[in-house]
């Protein structure tokens, strides 16, 4: 029995403002628990596809259905939490790690009513990342690249996405930091049974992290 589909993408097309076709006639289904590596040469359209799936880029044609439903304007903020894009370079705000982790809960829709429950969740994630409680009080500008990516990941985990769109999350990191991020991601994903679409250029990493591979060429999916 196949798992329920999170995303059904049909004939998606993204054209740049200059008229260049960046992603063309792309169709794709991603189900709960799918662990997919997305690969292809630079400029093949991988990042654009991920950004289009996160609805960060306007699409010119095609359709994205989320859990069988057509998306309306008002559903989009909620959709972006469930189908969540993580930037290649982590973006943190000025302030402590805790303030960064609490950021999504400052939005009107996500106001936290039970602060104790939130603290417990953060505590659990900090342990998962092998950090101690003092990490929460560190300022974001003194963190290393790997630590910043850990904070960005933990913040993503807190919004509880079903599908993570990972745009080369380890490309700027050294071998050790890469291993830490990989292990953190896989632990959380396997624990919670989440799905991901992970852009990676590293064939070994693709082997390690995925059960299925998608290859893109000139804006199209050539192998799925």
């Amino acid at each position: 029995m196949t798992s329920p589909a999170i995303l059904n993408v049909n004939q998606l097309k993204r054209i740049s403002s200059g008229g260049d076709s960046l992603v063309e006639a792309t169709s794709l289904e991603i189900c709960e628990g799918d662990q997919i590596a997305l690969t292809g040469a630079s400029g093949a359209g991988k990042t654009v596809l991920l950004r289009a799936l996160a609805l960060l880029e306007p699409i010119q044609d095609g359709e994205i259905r989320w859990r069988g439903k057509e998306l309306s304007h008002s559903m989009i903020p909620k959709y972006r939490q469930d189908v969540h894009y993580l930037h290649q370079t982590p973006v943190l705000i000025e302030g402590t790690v805790r303030e960064n982790l609490m950021l999504p809960f400052l939005f009107k829709k996500n106001f936290v009513e039970n602060e104790k429950e939130m603290d417990e969740k953060i505590e659990e994630l900090i342990q998962l990342a092998n950090k101690d409680a003092s990490f929460l009080d560190r300022s974001s500008d003194v963190l290393s690249g790997g630590e910043k990516q850990i904070v960005a990941l933990l913040r993503s985990f807190l919004v509880d996405p079903s599908l993570l769109l990972l745009d080369e999350p380890t490309s700027a990191l050294d071998a050790e930091a890469t291993r830490n991020i990989e292990s953190l991601l896989l632990q959380w994903i396997n624990q919670k049974g989440k799905a991901y679409l992970w852009i990676s250029h590293d064939a070994n990493q693709q082997e390690r992290v995925s059960t299925r591979q998608i290859i893109m060429e000139s804006g199209r999916i050539v192998t799925s």
Binding site: P77, H84, P104, F107
Partner: peptide, 16 residues
Amino acid sequence: RGRVEMLLTLGATRWE
């Protein structure tokens, strides 16, 4: 731009 898009990915509305 990175910050604005980061907020959007976390579920912010365009105004937020």
